[in-house]
Write a protein that binds this DNA or RNA. Structure first.
Length: 484
DNA sequence: CGAGGAGCGA
DNA sequence: ACGTCGCTCCTCGA
């Protein structure tokens, strides 16, 4: 069921560094009250909650509600809720999230079973192949056994160490893949068994008799004010082609002749950067409906061949995430020096972006915080650290945070407005998922057009006085696999 | 049960 | 010595 713990967001406003608060800890510290633990009623998770004696279960549940309400009353009294962001975003969002959770998501059991068979075949095939190449049987799911076989028995070249041995992650293995087929096989094996255990078996376990799953959205665990999702985590369902796309295809409409409609913000972060920095070149490119990666490519390389566009995309990406020249070089496979030249050229192309970042860091150095478009603050106490590594990392964070956080707010505001729209128009269609910059709806047949037009409009127009609109891509399909 | 390694998404 | 975070799975040793 939906969690209402999120009413405790104000706690995080006051103490953003405290990230592991729970209801019972708050009850203890504010009311000196010891709550009944989940483990107490379920005898250390041995008993399924639905089998717990009703009297105990009722006590436990009622206490949850009681304490939550008490905390809610307390925050009201203390006028914590006068906070602007809280009033305009977080509190209205709670209602939306609650409704979204209660809508549930329908999953096709048949589709999953099909995929299961497919994956099991692949896993079996690869398992045999790997045993053959290794001349022995071992547990491929154990990194320890993998490196023992690869590096001690087969004498493959070692590369990176971990705390407890040798790294055998996909980066390492793919470097060996050309010369040693077993490495590629292990990567594939991992890929398929990940899909099988996490997304097929895992999802089936969480389905009820009506093939519905109930995810929980949590608004208080991330440092960037994004949402997170658990049981199942709907925010990391694979998007790749091939078998993994079948997982997404298993998410379907709840009724016959309903459809899944997805609205995707296109490059929301780059657009937010353009809006916040007021860089004319960037804004102009968006106004002309240019493909922004091609445009960057044109400005940096004087052409937009697919090769250079790819590079430009990585560079745009770099700006958003604030990785170093070192990190960029690793991403695009060039030299550090070359990466630095690209970065410099980017700033030459979009000079106001550079100004914006410099200004942000300057303010942070002085006031110890950075701010989003909506006035959320993030304190970065180590911005003036004497260690230059730490300082640089803090600066990257200061550059990155206003964009990321503002983007998260954009989606949240859109969700609130869309939910309002659906309610006011008495529409049957439901908002069922949020995946960071994507909103997914289960759409009633006769509402397709009205939803497509209005939701797109609402999402694109969230930033009311911005010099450009945001851009949203829409697609509709029988399932979540859609047209991607 | 918890740490560590790995891999999925944004 | 560098992108980051959050979630989930598996193994392995306590």
């Amino acid at each position: 069921m939906a969690k209402f713990y999120d009413t405790l967001i104000w706690e995080y406003i006051k103490k953003p560094w405290q990230r592991w608060l729970s209801l019972d800890k708050l009850a203890k510290s504010y009311f000196d009250y010891q709550m009944i633990g989940y483990k107490d009623v379920t005898e250390n998770n041995k008993v399924d909650f639905k089998d717990v004696d009703l009297m105990f279960a009722a006590d436990y549940s009622a206490e949850d509600v009681y304490i939550t309400n008490k905390l809610y009353q307390k925050q009201k009294k203390e006028k914590i809720t006068d906070n602007e962001v809280l009033q305009s975003i977080e509190i209205p969002l709670l209602e939306v999230l609650k409704d979204m959770e209660l809508c549930w998501v329908k999953v096709s059991r048949d589709k999953l079973k099909w995929t299961w068979v497919l994956l099991e075949n692949e896993v079996d095939r690869l398992e045999k192949e790997i045993y053959k190449l290794a001349w022995e049987e071992f547990n491929i799911k154990s990194p320890k056994q993998v490196w023992e076989v690869l590096f001690w028995k087969l004498w493959l070249p070692k590369w990176k160490k971990t705390k407890t041995g040798w790294s055998v992650n996909s980066e390492v293995l793919l470097n060996l893949a050309n010369e040693f087929p077993i490495a590629k096989d292990i990567v594939d094996y991992r890929h398929y068994s990940k899909l099988l255990s996490t997304y097929v078996e895992g999802l089936i376990k969480l389905m009820d008799d009506n093939d519905m799953v109930y995810t929980s959205y949590n608004a208080t665990v991330t440092s960037t004010w994004r949402l997170s999702s658990t049981d199942p985590n709907l925010q990391n369902i694979p998007v790749w082609n091939g078998v993994s796309s079948q997982i997404r295809e298993a998410f379907i409409s709840r009724w016959e002749d309903w459809k899944i409609m997805a609205f995707d913000y296109s490059q929301v972060e780059v657009r937010v950067l353009a809006i916040m920095s007021w860089d004319e070149n960037l804004l102009w490119a968006f106004k002309q409906w240019f493909d922004i990666h091609s445009r960057t490519s044109e400005l940096i390389f004087w052409d937009f061949s697919s090769e250079n566009r790819k590079l430009a995309k990585a560079i745009n990406f770099w700006v958003i995430y604030g990785i170093s020249a070192f990190g960029l070089n690793k991403m695009i496979n060039s030299w550090v020096k070359q990466a630095q030249i690209y970065i410099d050229k980017f700033y030459e192309s979009y000079p106001k972006v550079k100004d914006f970042f410099e200004k942000t860091i300057e303010v942070a150095r002085e006031k110890w915080y950075v701010e989003t478009m909506f006035g959320r603050r993030r304190y970065i106490w180590w911005i003036n650290d004497s260690n230059s590594l730490i300082r640089q990392s803090a600066e990257r964070e200061a550059m990155n945070m206003p964009i990321q956080w503002t983007s998260a707010d954009v989606v949240k505001k859109a969700m609130i407005e869309v939910a309002d729209f659906l309610e006011k128009k008495w529409l049957k269609s439901k908002m069922i998922m949020q995946v960071h910059d994507e909103l997914v709806f289960d759409v009633y047949k006769w509402e397709e057009e009205v939803l497509e037009k209005n939701v797109k409009g609402i999402m694109e127009g969230v930033l009311k006085n911005a010099p450009i609109e945001l851009k949203v891509d829409v697609w509709i399909s029988d399932n979540w696999g859609g047209a991607k």
